[in-house]
Design a protein around this nucleic acid. Structure first.
Lengths: 112, 112
DNA sequence: ACATTACATTCCCATATAGGAATATGTCAA
DNA sequence: TTGACATATTCCTATATGGGAATGTAATGT
């Protein structure tokens, strides 16, 4: 089998750096497509395709107004990612403590 | 261009569900490959290949002991993901507040 | 009606899988 | 040495891109 589709879930969708940039841009406020194009300096079709992926997994929402479409990030859809990563939080704290302790022991050793 | 390599960064590496399972398993304690195989019921070559990807992006570390290799999750490498997602945290809080307020207004309207 | 603006979709292609099967490499035990 | 055990790598293949170019579609202005 090949790699899972980018639209299979938020984890796959955010693997693409451009899509993360779009999400960061659209969390501040909604924007029409041409503004995203101008801001990120990407081709319009490229932006539309990324937005399609983001929309498919619920990471962005659209509001239509005439011929313009305003997109905005749906923060709620990023929560699962945050929670998955947060489960490791206490471990890196521990690792930092261990690193700190080791450094302190080394410093104490050195000063002898 | 095709999709970025799974080894290009942690975001791409964790897009694969099996790799996330491996990371969750190996955060508790280090384990030799055959234990991962048994625990997750995957083929050994598959596990080795996933571990290779995880190792390339620094998400796991190895300790060799005779013919066995003990892998463990390097929590520190998950931190960037956590921080990226955390930047959206306050927005979903806001969204939740808005949803709550809307629900309350609707309820108030209904009771009239 | 017609040109223009704003987006979306389609086609083509080079590239990177992930899984399965087979094989290679490295280490220990008798 | 030889065989068993533990892990890694290589081949093969179907599939899914992401970028570029071209085209489709819908709404607006004149």
């Amino acid at each position: 089998m090949a790699r899972a589709a980018t639209t299979s879930d938020a984890f796959n969708a955010i693997a693409e750096p451009r899509r993360r940039e779009i999400l960061t841009l659209l969390i501040v406020r909604e924007r029409p497509v041409n503004e995203i194009v101008a801001e990120l300096r990407l081709d319009q079709p490229s932006v539309s395709k990324h937005l399609r992926v983001l929309r498919d997994v619920g990471l962005v929402r659209v509001r239509c107004d005439g011929r313009r479409k305003f997109y905005r990030t749906n923060a709620e859809a990023i929560r699962p990612l945050h929670e998955w990563a947060a489960a490791f939080e206490r471990y890196w704290s521990h690792q930092l403590i261990r690193v700190k302790e080791r450094a302190e022991r080394a410093a104490a050793q050195e000063s002898k």
